[in-house]
Design a protein around this nucleic acid. Structure first.
Lengths: 213, 213
DNA sequence: TCCGTGCAGTACGCATCCGTATGGAATAAC
DNA sequence: GTTATTCCATACGGATGCGTACTGCACGGA
């Protein structure tokens, strides 16, 4: 537990006794722990975020962890918060640019599918959705994304109901794609052309004005 | 560890000391444990299948468990095997009936989406895909389903590549739908009409001969 | 009636994790 | 140099899970 009002200082490396483990580094920050936690979540899910294993991986001991965080749940909470806020920023960033409704949809979807790392992180978090610490954040992000999708389809002139269904379909295709990529990458690899995949999706969803297939 | 060659017998209820826990029952079978494990998997994922908690839930102690199974991994393995074999049977059952290629696709997809319990179980297992005990079974089932999908689309006269992409898209939409349903049911509920959702999916995938929308 | 067998309870040792307590090394400030 | 501060190591107690060993009970058959 670091005192609420920090002072100053920052120092140079050091290492544990028997452990010249990974890369030598200076003192850790809470951010370092959060990053490590998110990495671990991608690989093994939220429930794998345990203090002692994580500390081993970083190459320090619990002593460090409990200096930066009150307890395990606080780390998880911070990591999730960081993720969700990141998503919020992303959505806004991708939203702003394009005016034309159809182009915006395409840009949105292509960008989403192209950011593989983020997609896999989303899949990992969805995989931990039974965890009550995860659920609210997942809900937030999904609602935001779905709302954006619905908006975009309505901007094409579609009625509410249809826009909702199409948005859900697009989002499910997104979530499912990365779930499959995470669970059984080999299966996805068979249809290796991602851009073709996304084209199919988009062409199937955007009202067939001139389906460019 | 029950002796390899069982004999006979079957007896009447009994209960633990302080525990008139759930429903009174006779002696448990390995199947009972497997069923309980699958139930737990749906609710909390594979990693939640622990002997002692599971025993508590059933209302017995570990003593019983280790009578029926060698260890925890054996239970998990049996449960997964049971699931995968069930899926295999399902696929065949739904496959046999219909001759017309387009109708078969529709029937297949509608049936898949309608079996909510199975869909949620699939989502739960996919959520545990990082578990090396789960991965192979998941792979098997997904490959089988995808192969069936590709077949079905090729039967419509589509070229290989397109059939693969459409099958992947359909499967991702399936996986994603149930993942969302599991993770954030509220989000899915907004587009409440499942049949409309599936219609959208199918109409987007089946080559627009006479898109019946 | 007295065993044998099927199933379950109880108790133990071991491992892993949590969170706490406390000490210690390196640096910055003085 | 002395001191305060930052960051980490180490050692502890408690909880929970695994797997083993052994005991106990109810039933069926002899």
């Amino acid at each position: 537990m670091p005192p609420k009002a920090p002072a100053k200082a920052a120092r140079t490396p050091r290492r544990a006794k028997g452990a010249a483990k990974v890369a030598p580094r200076g003192p850790l920050s809470a951010q370092d722990w959060i990053r490590a936690a998110l990495n671990l979540i991608i690989r093994e899910g939220v429930q794998a975020v345990a203090v002692e294993p994580l500390a081993r991986e970083i190459g320090v001991t619990k002593g460090s962890f409990y200096w930066h965080f009150q307890n395990r749940d606080h780390l998880v909470a911070e990591a999730l918060k960081a993720w969700a806020e990141d998503q919020g920023r992303d959505v806004v960033a991708r939203w702003g640019g394009v005016q034309d409704a159809e182009r915006r949809l395409r840009v949105l979807l292509f960008a989403a599918f192209e950011d593989q790392e983020n997609g896999l992180l989303f899949a990992a978090l969805s995989a931990s959705s039974e965890d009550p610490r995860v659920q609210p954040w997942l809900r937030r992000v999904s609602e935001q994304r779905l709302a954006l999708g619905v908006e975009s389809f309505k901007a094409l002139g579609l009625p509410d109901m249809e826009a909702k269904q199409k948005a859900l379909l697009a989002y499910a295709a997104y979530a499912g794609y990365f779930q499959l990529l995470r669970a059984t990458p080999a299966a996805v690899a068979s249809a290796s052309d991602l851009s073709g995949y996304v084209h199919h999706l988009v062409d199937g969803l955007v009202p067939p004005k001139k389906a460019k297939k």
